[in-house]
């Protein structure tokens, strides 16, 4: 039910943003959105019918469960959120290293810490060498990138 509910909420919000728009902005969205709402309503009706017959239950069990905490999925998600928030401040290399170190340690439940540290450092440095040093892409820069640039510039 999560996806149909999300779809219904989003479609209704979308409709609210185009109510006073010219027809060119409405025609496609109204036709697609109406069909989507129709499919979702059929799905909801079907689910309610199944619930009444006792053929199904409503729960979030297959999306989030206690197992997700144990398997490290929740930890991985939080680490990913942290990675996205911090990369603009710490720069690509340092954030990637910290993210890999934390998330691999969570998933490995603390085992093989030395190996994980080495893998994280190699991957982060490899990424820096390829994407920033060689390709000069505009990946977020931070303390490490600035320092290395100064070091390399001064021989």
């Amino acid at each position: 039910m999560v996806i149909p509910v999300l779809a219904i909420v989003f479609t209704l919000y979308f409709f609210s943003t185009i109510l006073n728009s010219p027809w060119t902005a409405q025609v496609s969205a109204f036709s697609l959105g109406s069909l989507l709402l129709l499919f979702c309503v059929i799905f909801v009706a079907k689910t309610v019918y199944q619930l009444r017959r006792g053929d199904g239950t409503l729960s979030f069990g297959n999306i989030v469960s206690r197992d997700d905490l144990a398997s490290g999925r929740v930890g991985l998600f939080l680490a990913t959120l942290g990675f996205t928030l911090l990369i603009d401040y710490l720069g690509f290399t340092l954030t990637t290293f910290l993210f890999l170190l934390v998330s691999m340690t969570i998933l490995a439940r603390g085992r093989g810490f030395m190996r994980i540290t080495l893998v994280s450092a190699l991957m982060a440095l490899g990424g820096w060498a390829v994407f920033i040093l060689a390709f000069d892409t505009r990946f977020p820069r931070g303390w490490f990138e600035t320092t290395m640039k100064a070091v390399l510039a001064n021989g």
């Binding site: 779809a7 989003f10 919000y13 979308f14 185009i18 728009s21 060119t24 902005a25």
Partner: peptide, 24 residues
């Protein structure tokens, strides 16, 4: 069909191509 049409609606986000009216 729900997944496909949900994708089509998400793809409609942005300004319309004629009058640049922001949508969703």
């Amino acid at each position: 069909l729900i997944a496909g049409f949900f994708g089509l609606m998400i793809g409609s986000i942005g300004t319309d191509v004629v009058y640049a009216t922001p949508r969703g």
